[in-house]
């Protein structure tokens, strides 16, 4: 009921400016890092290739993102390891 009154009086939960700001924040992460989605994808594939030399990873569960906090953009990867490869473990 209170929500209904709020809405009637024009106090919407997500104003369009909030949407605009959030969309801008996300798009600028990519713009500022000047990395296109295609390049990000290539980087991801290369990374998977290199890591796969050493360990078996769960590619389906792999998370790979450019994140921004304040004035910094970070490449954050969460790569679940299934098991180490025996030959590399033996060499070490």
């Amino acid at each position: 009921m209170l929500e209904f009154i709020s809405r009637m009086l024009g106090k919407e939960s997500a104003s369009s400016k909030t949407v605009a700001k959030e969309r801008l924040r996300l798009v600028l992460v990519h713009d500022r890092a000047s990395i296109s989605p295609a390049m990000l994808n290539r980087l991801r594939e290369d990374l998977v290739k290199v890591i796969s030399n050493y360990m078996e990873i769960d590619e389906a569960a792999l998370e790979f993102n450019l994140l921004q906090d304040d004035n910094e953009v970070a490449l954050v990867a969460n790569i679940p390891v299934v098991k180490m490869k025996r030959d590399y473990a033996a060499k070490a």
Binding site: S15, T18, K21, N71
Partner: peptide
């Protein structure tokens, strides 16, 4: 429009562009 929340305010833009 700013008052209605339908346009980005000065502070919103400064926040983004710094």
């Amino acid at each position: 429009m700013v008052k209605r929340g339908d346009m980005m305010d000065i502070s919103d833009i400064l926040d983004i562009l710094a």
